[in-house]
Design a binder for these strands. Sequence first.
DNA 1: TAGATACCTTATAG
DNA 2: ACTATAAGGTATC
Length: 307
Amino acid sequence: MHRGTLSLPSVGPFDLQSTVESGQSFRWVREDGRTYEDDEAYGGDAWYATVVGGDEGADAPTTGVVRVRQIDDRLEWEASFDAEETLRRRLRLDDDLPAIRAATPDDPLLDAAFDRYWGLRLVRDPPFATLIAFICSAQMRIGRIHEMQRALEERFGESVTFDGVEYHAFPTPARLAEATEADLRDLGLGYRAPYVQRTAEMVAEGTAHPQEATDLAYEDAREYLTQFVGVGEKVADCVLLFSLGFVEAVPLDTWIRSTIEEYYPECDRGSYAETSRAIRERFGGQYAGYAQTYVFHHLRNGGGSAE
DNA sequence: TAGATACCTTATAG
DNA sequence: ACTATAAGGTATC
């Protein structure tokens, strides 16, 4: 058992709950077993766990389990290995949040979102698991996307025991590629089942790998990812933003589209590509994905003109 | 290239 | 109880 504490003034503002429960990551499981839709019962100091390794390859030299919780300005962790660097990377603790906000234009909506969830950070999740999770996300609620990922892990993921508790890594591409469409439909994936199987097969066979997009220019990277089955421009943007470090990416989902309609109508240019360019510019360019994630979380929790 | 439609499953509103 | 609708869209025509 390895343990450690990160003092938050050293990494700047941070809000663990907002970061891992804002619908950007599906890799963290709350240890108290409460669902992600049960926010009102949240106590503020819950442990969250994730299994590192599995499909992560070189990104995570150590396979193991990490638990983390936030108590005031301390981030406590327990893990089966020395997890400090993993946490810094996965939770983007080195991002300069004040500088990012300073680079984002002021307007009433962005100010409200940043004020309300100040400390929310983007995540840097493993590419394959993120690709699969967002293929699953089509026409799904956040809670059910979580359920699907847990089902995939339990059915196809490697079992890991830590501190007397059994955890499951996310399945490897090879293991998911072996699954049949019927297997995946049984887990409740619906029409996404063949998308997941075929995409896993592409990665397992070496046809393509989401990691390959990292070296490309942003729009080329988005185009690259759409070769995977079940991956359109929106899902590609999610993978770029939440896994591959393209902090300028702004996934145009239903929430952001309605936001554009209501608050930034001049940014609606018809096509995804052009609207994407316009809203990215409106959100300040290089860190536009940060603004998107704050706004998404804010509006999904009742923020905006309705309040 | 832009627009319309089907698609699995679940939860919620009426 | 039962039907309609929507949920972080994509593939196909």
